[in-house]
Amino acid sequence: MANILEAKALAKDYGGGVGLLGADIVLPEGKIVGLLGSNGSGKTTFLKLVAGILKPTAGEVLVCGERIGIDTKSMVSYLPERTYLNDWMRVSDIVEYFDDFYEDFDSAKAFEMLSNLKVEPNRKLKTLSKGTKEKVQLVLVMARNAKLYLLDEPIAGVDPVAREYILDTIVSNYNKDATVVISTHLITDVEKVLDDFIFVRDGKVIMQDSVAKAREEYGKTLDEIFREVYKCSEKA
């Protein structure tokens, strides 16, 4: 199985505080991976480095063997925490925008997903609620046939019903040869869809394994393992 992502001693120092401290992460293709940790543990920094929004202070990261650049940006589909959509655009405009810039974008799939969400393509983005805008953004990201999906807190700040819907949308729409990285601190909600997990704390990777293997080894849920590992690393 080929590796989609390889991070070697990846570090990011913001000057005022360290974002990431020498992370070594390897992700094979065809997996849904949970990037799990508390707020400020370095999850967003890691995703930004892979998406090409930040430059690492040290180390390197490769996507499909390529250094971060224009080529990797055409393979990575990134959902940031923030809403980046231009409010003056209509929903159909932003779909056209993605279709123009990303060769792997499937506009028919996007319109189908929007229809399932009951979002009218002719509506201006500024008329949509914050939650609906986030769903539109998720549709844009998942309608790409990318090699790597980076989803930063896709279920934070939404009600449990919406969480179910978002996770269903992710699981049923991603390119099956690709890898999906879901960054979250809501472990219980995502546990059932994950193949692998990475625990991060204070900018360091403290554990990386398959969910099934860890459950078998510890005889606990991922959420319980997370709490136990966090306690241990806190004492250490």
């Binding site: 090409g52 929004i53 810039f101």
Partner: peptide
């Protein structure tokens, strides 16, 4: 601004 999250993830130099 937040729009940069889109600008800098486009496959454009």
């Amino acid at each position: 601004t937040d729009e940069a999250y889109l600008t800098f993830t486009l496959p454009v130099s």
